[in-house]
């Protein structure tokens, strides 16, 4: 049916029951239905990475996932990772290194960078670039972002930059 469908999921640990139209994507659901506007929407076809969120532990494009597909899933957004403190050091490193200007790409960058650091505690710069290759930044020129991620990885390993 093109009529609303019932979904139950958790978003940042909180249980959500909602009625959604099949065509509603997860990014719009988070932003417009739940008011979680930290997940940004740039291109709506998968190329910019601004909408990156975590679903069942894996980063995905929220613009390429239907809200109905997240039934029974656990969704985590930048608000969740900020509030829990999981990315506090990464956020501080982004500020310190001027790794953001307008900030449009930043939530997606943080999600992708944290995903890398969870899988690889000691990534080299090429690996950082590879992991962030799907996230566009129109302001910084990327170097400062790579620096911030590298510095965070070092600090988490207890090493000096």
């Amino acid at each position: 049916m093109t009529a609303p469908v019932a979904v139950s999921l958790t978003v940042n640990g909180e249980r959500i029951d909602a009625q959604v139209l099949p065509r509603l994507n997860l990014a719009d659901f988070l932003r417009e239905h739940l008011g979680l506007t930290g997940t940004h929407v740039g291109c709506e076809h998968g190329v910019c990475g601004a909408c990156t969120v975590r679903v069942d532990g894996d980063i995905v494009r929220a613009c390429l996932l239907l809200a109905v597909q997240t039934h029974n899933a656990s969704v985590e957004t930048i608000e969740g990772l900020s509030d829990s403190g999981e990315v506090a050091d990464l956020q501080a490193a982004f500020c310190n290194r001027n790794a953001l200007q307008c900030g449009y790409c930043t939530p997606g960058m943080l999600m992708a960078a944290q995903d890398l650091l969870r899988q690889n505690a000691a990534p080299d710069r090429a690996q950082i670039r590879e992991h962030l290759s799907g996230n566009y930044c129109r302001c910084t020129g990327y170097h400062a972002i790579i620096d911030a991620v590298e510095a965070t990885a070092l600090a988490r390993r207890g090493e000096q930059p």
């Binding site: 994507n25 709506e44 998968g46 494009r61 239907l66």
Partner: peptide, 26 residues
């Protein structure tokens, strides 16, 4: 058919494709 959606969803969002039904095989 909707599988990973990583090619189909862009096509739907760009309205290059407008099927009546999506059969999600996930």
């Amino acid at each position: 058919v909707l599988s990973g959606g990583q090619s189909l969803m862009p096509a739907l969002n760009l309205r290059l494709s407008a099927p009546e039904w999506l059969v999600d095989i996930g």
